[in-house]
């Protein structure tokens, strides 16, 4: 092996939730500790709302019902959906396939899908 010069230490990875409200970061920490799915739902909803386009957002809106369709009601395009998926993958070190993504059309389906990723014993 040739001698390698000392390499710079990479900066520690910052949480993707760093700029989210404290309540969301707390729910995330709690979910990691207790695996309570209600906390997971809180984080997923916050991520969805964070990516929602401005033109479908009404002022003061802080939630989206389970029945809300991501594309038809919330105005997402396929790339914005991919961003949500990447955010979740990055946050929870998941892999979400295109086939799985195509089956999700509503906020409720997204909640159920992310919950199922943690429920499945062989998911990893």
């Amino acid at each position: 092996m040739p001698d390698l010069p000392p390499q710079p230490t990479p900066a520690p990875a910052r949480s993707p939730l760093a700029k989210f409200p404290p309540a969301i970061r707390t729910a995330h920490e709690r979910f990691l500790a207790t695996k309570n799915p209600a906390d997971l739902d809180t984080v997923v909803l916050a991520i969805v709302l964070d990516h929602q386009p401005a033109h479908t957002r009404t002022s003061g809106e802080i939630t989206a019902p389970d029945s809300a369709r991501l594309i038809a009601d919330l105005g997402f395009d396929s790339l914005a959906l991919a961003e949500i998926v990447f955010f979740l993958e990055d946050l929870y070190q998941l892999t979400i396939t295109n086939e799985e993504l195509l089956r999700i059309t509503t906020v409720g389906e997204l909640h159920a899908f992310v919950r199922s990723k943690f429920a499945a014993p062989a998911a990893a």
């Binding site: 790339l79 961003e83 998926v85 990447f86 990055d90 892999t95």
Partner: peptide, 15 residues
Amino acid sequence: LAHARASNFERGNPM
């Protein structure tokens, strides 16, 4: 690219 390489290109930012 550093982010994608960290997962050996399993994940990457869509933007």
